[in-house]
C-alpha cells in the first residue's frame, strides 16, 4: 500500500502516532522540493512527487478514521451509504425536530441539542472502538455507522448556531 510505503511501514490498522510524525519530519527534511531547487529537472520532479505522496499519506494515516477507510479500501472492502437499521427510529425523530426548528418552532431546540450531544458521544465511542478492533468486517460496520452519525451531527449543527 502506497501510503504505508511512503513511510517505510508495514500496512497495519493501528499505528504509533509519535513514530509516524517522526518519520514524516525526517522524510520531509530529505525530500522537500526546497532541497532540490538547484538539482536537475528530473530530480526536482521526483522530489515533488515523493513529497506530494508523503503529505497525502500523512494526512490519511495520522487520522484513525481516514486510515481505517484507506486500509479497508486497499483490502477490497467497500463502504456502504445506507443507514444502519438500529438508528432508523432515532433518525426519524431527528428529522421531525429539524423540520420543526426550520419552521420556526423553537421548542425543538433542547431536543436537538440533546440529540447532538448523544451523537457526538456515539461518534467518540466508535472512535474508541476503532483503535482496538482488528476484524475488518467489524471495522467496516463501525465506519459505516460513524459516517452516518457524522452526517447527522453536521445536519444538526447546520441549524443550531453555536
Amino acid at each position: 500500500m502506497r501510503f504505508y510505503e511512503a513511510f517505510g511501514l508495514e500496512p497495519a490498522l493501528s499505528l504509533d502516532a509519535e513514530d509516524l510524525k517522526k518519520r514524516f519530519y525526517e522524510r520531509s527534511r530529505k525530500w522537500h522540493p526546497d532541497r532540490f531547487s538547484r538539482a536537475s529537472a528530473a530530480e526536482q520532479e521526483k522530489a515533488l512527487e515523493m513529497t506530494a505522496v508523503l503529505n497525502d499519506a500523512f494526512r490519511t494515516l495520522r487520522d484513525p478514521v481516514a486510515r481505517a477507510e484507506y486500509f479497508l479500501k486497499e483490502n477490497g472492502f467497500e463502504l456502504s451509504k445506507e443507514a444502519p437499521p438500529e438508528l432508523l427510529e432515532e433518525v426519524f425523530e431527528l428529522n421531525m425536530a429539524l423540520e420543526e426548528l426550520r419552521e420556526g418552532d423553537d421548542s425543538a431546540r433542547p431536543q436537538l441539542i440533546e440529540a447532538r450531544n448523544r451523537f457526538v458521544a456515539m461518534r467518540d465511542s466508535i472512535d474508541q472502538s476503532l483503535t482496538t478492533t482488528t476484524d475488518l468486517e467489524e471495522v467496516r460496520a463501525l465506519l459505516n455507522r460513524r459516517r452516518y452519525i457524522r452526517n447527522l451531527i453536521r445536519e444538526v449543527e447546520n441549524v443550531l448556531p453555536n
Binding site: 522540493p33 515533488l48 513529497t51 506530494a52 505522496v53 503529505n55 497525502d56 500523512f58 494526512r59
Partner: peptide, 8 residues
Amino acid sequence: NSTIPASA
C-alpha cells in the same frame, strides 16, 4: 490546510 505539495 492540506500540507503542500498535495495531490488527488
